[in-house]
Amino acid sequence: MSAAPQPDDTAATGTDAAAPAARGGLPALAGLAGLPTQTVARAWGNVRDWATHGHLADTRRMPRLPIHLGDGYTVHRYEPTAPVDPALAPLLLVPPLGAPDFAFDLRRGASLVEDLLATGREIFIVTYDATGRAAGRRGLELWVDEIVPAALFAIADRHADQPVHLAGWSLGGLFTLLAAASGVSGAPIRSVTAFASPVDVSAVPLVAPFRSVAEYTGGRVFSAAYRTLGSFPATAVKWAFQLTSVERYLTKPVTLATHLDDRELLEQIEAVDTLMANMTAYPGRAFGQLYHHVIRGNDLAQDELRLAGRPVRLADVDVPVLLIAGADDVIAPVAAVERATELLTASPDLRFVVRPGGHLGVLAGRRARENSWSDLQAFLADHDRE
């Protein structure tokens, strides 16, 4: 449940330096005969810049500093780019497992973090350590009951104990919803926004073959695999999401060759390649829980999920919620996301919108600013005051 590249998807590198060249590079100038002079000039300029600099996209990270170090996780605060507005409540971003956290911080000019900082809002993000012996033993309850709440308390401590907005993408969105549903921590949550977070996996075509195999084998095949490996490997995560857009991968050389004059599209493709190259492994125990309770049992859709031996029900979420689905998302189809609207019965302000883009595109696509980002900004503004 993380990102698959789609035409309007963007991402950024995992370092503060500019990204290396996209794998495979740009094709040679060919097939431009007969095109307008201006088109040829733009295409030539893009190829020249790529040849000179080794990349086109500016994927430097927005500066951030750690404010809280935990066992296997870190809470960071992004450095403000505009005067901080005390009337705007802070926002904590929650990335999914498997995908790099920099999906929120895209190439310059196309970054949700950059866009939010420009409004004067303080932005924080929690990141996870996916390596080490202990990582494989971490279950979903760790994120729901410990990591997300600890991050919220760390931020609230800096803001006179005021509640904090939460926004997550994909599995990160489910973490935010479940953290709000769990009453264990008493975390100070002001609102929750979930981008492309599938609640009903029966509506996800990609999952259907896995559910069939699980039914036939009683779940033993996948259980044996992740227990033996200790995790769901990063390479497997990458392959799984590439399968969701295999046609686009096959036609990528043609897309590059026929869009050499489209600088923004070329930057976008390059950034998505960087994202895919930085996928990480799913911790073994967490993947096992996802497999048995979400993929195989579809417990979330029935609001019957149990963590650490107790029920964690979306019906208990009593804060405002914004659900954003991607119109072209094959990992979290509209129906899979919309199912949550039938379960979040206690939310005082429940909003559901469908916006252009795929799984990553709805969060980070070229049309996100005027669509999902605008929805988020309006929702946060409506709930900045308690």
Rank of each mutant, 00 (worst) to 15 (best):
S111K: 02
A271N: 01
L65P: 11
Y249D: 12
I155W: 05
T274W: 01
L265M: 10
T345D: 08
A103M: 02
A21G: 07
A57K: 00
P5T: 00
K252L: 09
H76M: 09
Q289F: 10
H68V: 13
R355C: 01
Q242G: 14
T119V: 05
A224M: 07
G297R: 09
S2Q: 06
A150K: 07
A57F: 01
P95W: 14
P86C: 11
M1A: 15
A214H: 07
R48F: 15
E141T: 15
T258N: 13
I147Q: 08
P333S: 07
T244Q: 09
R369N: 07
R220H: 13
G358H: 00
A240L: 12
L260C: 00
G109H: 08
F102R: 05
I269T: 01
G25K: 02
A57I: 03
S223T: 13
P27G: 12
I269G: 03
A57S: 09
L360F: 02
D303E: 08
P100C: 09
G183R: 15
G297P: 03
Y226M: 05
P27T: 01
G34D: 04
L376G: 04
A286F: 08
E79I: 15
P188D: 13
P149I: 13
A12Y: 04
R137K: 10
T341D: 10
R211E: 07
G24D: 04
A43C: 05
A110L: 13
V113L: 08
P348T: 02
E386A: 14
T15P: 02
G365F: 00
G109D: 03
D157W: 09
N278S: 10
E370H: 15
A179H: 06
G173H: 08
D329M: 03
A224I: 03
T15I: 06
L229V: 04
F195G: 02
L97C: 08
H76I: 05
A3Q: 03
G358T: 04
A118Q: 13
R385M: 05
A33M: 06
L229S: 12
E342P: 07
H159Y: 12
P7F: 05
R248E: 02
A332D: 00
A17S: 15
A364H: 02
I125L: 11
Y128K: 10
P20K: 05
R138L: 06
R42F: 12
L91S: 11
V75F: 06
T235M: 15
V317I: 09
A181Q: 01
I324W: 15
L323P: 00
D328H: 11
M279I: 06
Y291G: 00
G297E: 06
A196G: 13
D161E: 14
R227V: 08
T258M: 11
W143I: 06
M62L: 11
A180N: 15
P5E: 01
